[in-house]
Amino acid sequence: MAENILEINNLTVTYGQFKIITEVSFKVKPKEIVCIAGESGCGKSTLIKAVLGLKQLGAQIEEGSVILDGRDITRLGVEERRQILGTEIGYVPQNTRGSFNNIRSYEVQYKETMLAHGLPFVKADAIDVFKKLNFPDADTILEYQPWEMSGGMNQRMAIGLAVLQKPKLMLADEATSVLDVTSQKEVIEELSKLRDELGWSILFITHNLGVASHIADKLGVMYAGRMVEYGAIRKVLDHPIHPYTRALLAAIPGKDRKLPQGLEGRPPLDGAEWTGCNFVPRCRFACEACKTKKYQLIEVEPDHFASCSEGME
């Protein structure tokens, strides 16, 4: 196994005339959960699609590379891509209602998916996995059909299916944001457990730093196609440097029951192409120099990078 499960180097993605992601680099090490956070439109979902393959989206990888376990998968053909999806890269989508056929039993769909990837389906194995994940009625749950289940349980079944395929890397795109609070917590605990017990590496996308703080080892904050802050979770959350990271933190309702502070406006569509800092229009601390300063991630302390030094004393 290579040193890094996933390596994203200097990735730039364009859609038509728009850049959606500019020069994003980060690594996912084995047994590590990396969270990428940001508002909708910041490019975080496109990042996941770049790993999964962008074919249907009309987006294009302009520059940079995506390396999965030592193998460059940036420009794989359709057939090769299909082979690594599921077996090497697992995916838990946001909307699990859409990922299962509502009126066929889980067993049929599990079997079908496994066979499609050339993997054997052994019912006992699946039940084993369910027991390990503490599913209720682990023995009989395969006979149910998705419509009989809650959204949270459906999401966990999708995770169960991914576990069976034993991928090297798990991608989760807002996997908890449509769930109820209790199911959200269950799914998050599930994913942490998978990391601890099975040594999974997970790339987790979310807009909620509260969720991220409970699951991630590393946290990246994206804004308008650029990574504005990246580092070990405790360092980023305890000493957020970039004004945007701090704005995201202030927007989460806290234990003190103070009204959360919002952030007006939305990320510019073409923000990735700006020469200066693209957060300027929404930034409280912006000055003239910010408009022209070239974007660059600076190491503010070991294992903690930010593209702005505003938050440093």
């Binding site: 508002e39 909708s40 807009h207 909620n208 730093l209 704005a247 995201l248 202030a250 927007a251 989460i252 009204l259 959360p260 502070q261 919002g262 952030l263 007006e264 939305r266």
Partner: peptide, 11 residues
């Protein structure tokens, strides 16, 4: 909604 948009509405 995103957390920041949500906070905006509450404000």
């Amino acid at each position: 909604l995103d957390v920041s948009a949500q906070a905006m509405i509450l404000q």
